[in-house]
């Protein structure tokens, strides 16, 4: 497991070896749900920074994610978050919305990144260097960190939306298409947070 953790710093170390300084991991949360925004996060970690708890961000419990969120926020050189709401997702489609959220997250950073490591995507018009890595959140520490920031930020948002629309239980399913969520939509109809893209499917 030690080895696996060390391996998660490979891309960052290799890019540093070739003189890149601010290597930025980017990931997104909320591509799949029926409601709410897509949230992207960009994270630059200090060189050599490894979080032992952060091996596979998909396998973390929400408590572990919250703890890591605090740790990453504390130690990262810079963090950016980009949020694109459901109306824009309907307008430009989810892939374009994800890319837009990622671009927003990069634009927010206080430290300008000179290389992007992105989970499974590349961004148009970023010329300093970038690479999309399939399963990036398992292979790169920066992407894994970004994944946690994006997911926790989005979860918090959905809990806030729960205060506004308590009938849908967004605090429980965060907008994903669970049995509870579907039954609530059948009961109440969609609200202004629901993506139209899905309305045809569920109604």
């Amino acid at each position: 497991m030690e080895h696996r953790l060390f391996a998660m710093g490979f891309f960052e170390r290799a890019l540093t070896a070739f003189g890149r300084r601010n290597i930025c991991g980017i990931d997104e949360a909320g591509r799949g749900p029926l409601a709410g925004p897509v949230v992207a996060a960009a994270v630059i970690l200090p060189s050599g920074c490894l979080f032992p708890g952060l091996r596979d961000s998909k396998k973390l419990t929400s408590g572990q994610r919250e703890a890591l969120f605090e740790q990453i926020s504390h130690e990262a050189c810079s963090i950016g978050v980009g949020i694109v709401d459901n109306n824009i997702i309907d307008e430009i489609n989810i892939l374009q919305a994800t890319i837009l959220a990622m671009q927003k997250s990069v634009a927010q950073m206080k430290v300008a990144p000179d290389y992007l490591l992105i989970d499974a995507l590349t961004l148009p018009d970023f010329r300093r260097g970038q690479k999309g890595i399939i399963h990036g959140d398992r292979l790169s520490m920066s992407i894994a960190a970004a994944s946690v920031i994006a997911k926790v930020t989005r979860d918090h948002l959905m809990c806030e939306y729960h205060e506004v629309f308590p009938e849908y239980k967004f605090n429980l399913h965060k907008g994903y298409g669970t049995a509870v969520h579907l039954s609530k939509i059948r009961e109440w109809g969609p609200c202004r947070l629901h993506r139209k893209t899905f309305r045809g499917v569920i109604l």
Binding site: A14, F18, R20, I133, I134
Partner: peptide, 10 residues
């Protein structure tokens, strides 16, 4: 030359 763009592979 510099490390080329988009060449990081697993």
């Amino acid at each position: 030359f510099d490390l080329s763009e988009s060449t990081v592979r697993c």
